[in-house]
Nucleic acid binder design. Structure first.
Length: 415
RNA sequence: CGGGGCGUAGUAUAUCGGUAGUAUACUUGUUUUGGGAACAAGAGGGCCGAGUUCGAUUCUCGGCGCCCCGACCA
């Protein structure tokens, strides 16, 4: 992508109406555009990041056997009335058509997925099965806050699994927990698995995946020595206590963001929708249901919050809009030709590169943009670099740069 | 939803009961090019409604919107 053709531009000033770091940097970089409180549009660079995050999640969900679907987000009111959600879920957006017919906007989709599953799951032979989608969700939050971290419209992957036995559910539950940890790891984040309450959702305990950051709105308590971690909502111990799991060290507290959760829903929804299957001995039974969510946009915000520095965003390679940012400095025609050739070579070798080919822009501004936009690798081509023997290559996260010969750069970046 | 703050150009800000200024971004031209360049010219602005006033962007009331704290959070 040529920066001269890029739809968006960076800006020097942070917006006055945002204080969250993720919103400031993403807006300054032209990654997102704010529509209203808690609602953001994702622009070319932002959409690329989101697509990459979604693809990581997609790969891991497929790996545990999830099948991707796309459910409607505009919902009939009937299933919501059937489960009581229409009156009991206060974040449910309810809308009325001009003929006064009532609808709901999807905020989680048990009410939609259960009737669909009922249609296709008739026998124990059809189980277990897991289906998921990655779509926008809508929640009528009283107060949207923290930029893209807590909005009224946001991206979320939601998976639902159906099982014949509690044991089989628990087996799958564990697999998904592992897949989730892989997803965070691939996004350069470290998540702690915490016990939390199921909210109104489930009477059983649920697990949340917490990422420690001051931008988070949850308080957790965890052990430095083992993997014990709990939400203070349900924690039975306090900061400074001994760890109930390993008995060592002192428990510490931290702010964290909930980057995912898994719930044991039991048979609540199958019962509400009279969803039974035929068992091996010819009887009938309700399946056991699990649900598993990860906020994709929140994950993007968390990456910005945890990895950025004072100059801008620092994307991990796995989700960066481009792997490299190629900066052409100066107006020398020979250098320009070399830069064009290099841009072509990088593209031909499958290296995603944003090419700052803008003329009349000072070197300082290009450097500042590169720092703000945060591609993992910065490649500078200029009279100075060519004289030194090639291009100057620097990681966004590091200070030191090195000169790499033009014919070595592809291999250099590939490893 | 309770409390607090704030709405002026694309963005960020200033001043003022009487012509709304600056920076940046934008357009044109010349120069410039390794850490947010220089000069010149150009274009662009008071959230909405009511009230007070000779006159309101400014004061008052109402609405709408945005941010923060709290509460809430499938």
């Amino acid at each position: 992508m040529r920066q001269s053709k890029l739809f968006t531009k960076t800006r020097k000033e942070a917006p006055a109406d945002e204080t969250a770091k993720n919103a400031e940097l993403l807006i300054r970089g032209g990654y997102v555009h704010k529509e209203m409180a808690g609602v953001y549009s994702y622009l070319p660079l932002g959409a690329r990041v989101l697509n990459k995050i979604e693809n990581i999640i997609r790969e891991e969900m497929n790996a545990v056997g999830g099948q991707e679907i796309r459910m409607a987000t505009l919902h009939p009111s009937e299933p919501w009335k059937q489960t009581g959600g229409w009156d009991n879920i206060d974040v449910l957006f309810k809308i009325q058509s001009r003929t006064e017919k009532e609808y709901a906007l999807g905020q989680s989709e048990e009410e939609i997925v259960t009737p669909i599953a009922r249609e296709y799951v008739q026998s124990y032979k059809d189980l277990p099965v897991a289906i998921y989608q990655i779509e926008q969700k809508y929640r009528d939050e009283l107060r949207a806050k923290s930029g893209i971290m807590r909005g009224r419209e946001f991206g979320m992957k939601d998976m639902y699994s159906f099982h014949t036995t509690q044991e089989d559910f628990e087996r799958f539950y564990e697999e998904v927990k592992k897949a989730y940890l892989k997803i965070y790891n691939r996004c350069a984040l470290v998540a702690k698995v915490t016990e939390a309450s199921g909210g109104g959702f489930s009477e059983k305990i649920s697990y949340e995946f917490m990422i420690v950051t001051d931008a988070g709105e949850d308080d957790i308590i965890y052990c430095d020595a083992c993997n014990y971690c709990a939400n203070t909502e349900v924690a039975k111990n306090k900061i400074g206590d001994t760890c109930p799991k390993c008995g060592k060290e002192n428990l510490v507290g931290a702010k964290a963001v909930e980057a995912g959760n898994v719930f044991d829903l039991g048979q609540k929804y199958p019962k509400a929708f009279n969803f039974t299957y035929t068992t091996e001995d010819g009887g009938s039974a309700y399946p056991i249901v699990g649900c598993y969510g990860i906020g994709t946009t929140r994950l993007m915000g968390t990456i910005v919050e945890t990895l950025s520095d004072e100059r801008g965003i620092v994307w991990p390679e796995s989700v960066a809009p481009f792997k490299a940012h190629l900066l052409l400095l100066g107006e020398d025609e020979k250098i320009k030709e070399e830069a064009e050739k290099l841009y072509k070579t990088l593209n031909e070798n499958g290296i995603e590169v944003l090419f700052d080919d803008r003329s009349g822009i000072s070197a300082g501004e290009k450097f500042a943009d590169a720092d703000l936009l945060g591609m993992p690798w910065r490649i500078v081509i200029s009279t100075k670099s060519i004289t030194a023997g090639g291009v100057e290559v620097k990681r966004r996260a590091e200070q030191k740069a090195e000169i790499v010969a033009l014919d070595k750069i592809v291999n250099f970046l590939k490893v």
